[in-house]
């Protein structure tokens, strides 16, 4: 590989800079950081009120509740993944920077996951306790959500790129992303269910990991193509 010309950062530096920038911006506007988490908590709070306060029955639906709440909270934050940067011209600078757009957008997606997926996964055990989940299941829930939200962020980045050119694209973004998220939901909820039952949840975790690998290899390319089209 040729050394980068003077004045241009290597790809690793460029990726790291984008990641750091997004994290710093998010912490400066901490509202955006807290909102998906609050949303996640509110949704899970609604289920006991709608169904039953009995922990035994809540425990049965807990995997579904946790995953659907995580899916929706993650989607909520996705709408803004590229939007602000498209408006103020940052994405155009990315395209012109001579760096790989795929890489830079991947860095943004990683930042998105660190700011929503990871906190959601960390928070899930707390919410899980409120749904009657036994303590020994908590590591499993955390691992499944952390892994599943990686793929979710990657798939969501494609949807966010595609809806860049759409006015009020929030609902459309959900319509595009949710059907694609079905496998994540199926495997993730199953892993969580097995973890709650105290059974071995390695099987669905492998499938989740396979989805993550596939997402990591293909989704950034599609997201970059989508953003390029959206910027035209």
């Amino acid at each position: 590989m040729n050394p980068p010309p003077a004045g241009r950062a290597s790809w690793a530096t460029a990726g790291r800079l984008v990641l750091e920038r997004d994290l710093r911006l998010a912490f400066r506007r901490s509202g955006q950081l807290v909102q998906p988490l609050a949303f996640f908590a509110v949704i899970t709070l609604l289920f006991p009120l709608a169904l039953t306060p009995e922990l035994a029955r809540l425990r049965e639906v807990a995997p579904g509740v946790l995953w659907i709440a995580a899916l929706l909270s993650s989607l909520l934050a996705l709408e803004f993944l590229f939007r602000d940067d498209a408006h103020d011209g940052t994405l155009e600078q990315f395209v012109l920077s001579g760096q790989s757009l795929t890489l830079l957008l991947f860095a943004k997606t990683v930042a998105h996951w660190m700011l929503t997926g990871l906190p959601l996964a960390v928070m899930a055990p707390v919410v899980g306790v409120a749904l009657g989940v036994p303590l020994q299941a908590l590591p499993g829930i955390l691992a499944a959500l952390a892994l599943g939200t990686v793929t979710l962020s990657l798939v969501g980045a494609i949807g966010a790129g595609l809806t860049l050119g759409v006015k009020r694209g929030g609902v459309l973004l959900s319509l595009l992303t949710l059907p694609l998220a079905v496998p994540i939901l199926v495997f993730g909820a199953r892993a969580t269910e097995l973890a709650i039952k105290g059974a071995d949840y390695a099987g669905p975790m492998y499938l989740l990991a396979a989805l993550a690998v596939l997402g990591l290899t293909l989704a950034p390319l599609a997201a970059a193509a989508a953003v390029r089209i959206g910027l035209e």
Binding site: I158, G165, V166, K167, G169, L176, A222, A226, I229, G230
Partner: peptide, 29 residues
Amino acid sequence: FLYLGYMGLRAGIEDTARADKASAVLAIV
């Protein structure tokens, strides 16, 4: 729902050339 999303995306982008390309990426995904 995949079909509906595809049609929604096409309808949501006014410029035909852009709608073509964006929906093409979605169809491939």
